[in-house]
């Protein structure tokens, strides 16, 4: 069903995962299409994680980390930022399309921003439709 798009969301332990908790404790409403994977730092996120998510059938991927300057490990998110710009270009070349990937900075207090990001991305992916990549790889 086109309604049931799957989005994998990588959240860093110190800020964005806290943001998800804040959204939860405040009982904010957002669509249930995301699967959150916690990593210690957004700098840990390897292009392989994003590609693997798409390969396994994700229709979209969100990567969230601390705001610039807030990284618990000083500069992990700066490294991720540079990496993400290349991953956007790579998945565009691979036909997946850069719109299916999104990265942003969400702090532990920004429950509202977390919910908004999820809402925005779910709407965008519903608009694009499910990704046929998994089907095509397994064909």
């Amino acid at each position: 069903m086109a309604e049931e798009v799957k989005i994998v969301m990588f959240c860093c332990n110190w800020c964005s995962y806290g943001g998800a908790d804040t959204a939860g404790t405040a009982r904010m409403q957002y669509p249930p299409n995301i699967r959150v994977i916690r990593v210690m730092c957004s700098g840990r996120i390897d292009p392989q994680f994003v590609l693997k998510a798409f390969r396994e059938g994700a229709d979209g991927v969100i990567v969230a980390g601390c705001h610039m300057g807030d990284c618990h490990y000083d500069a992990g998110n700066y490294k991720l930022d540079r990496r993400m710009r290349i991953i956007y270009n790579l998945i565009e070349e691979l036909g997946i399309g850069r719109e299916r990937l999104y990265h942003d900075w969400i702090s532990a207090s920004e429950g509202e921003k977390f919910a908004n990001t999820v809402r925005m991305m779910v709407a965008r992916i519903k608009d694009l439709g499910p990704s046929p990549l998994k089907e095509q790889i397994e064909a």
């Binding site: 590609l51 399309g97 046929p132 990549l133 095509q136």
Partner: peptide
Amino acid sequence: AALVPMKMQKGGK
């Protein structure tokens, strides 16, 4: 042999 071994083609909706 890569994780995404081919260019995704449009369609499949």
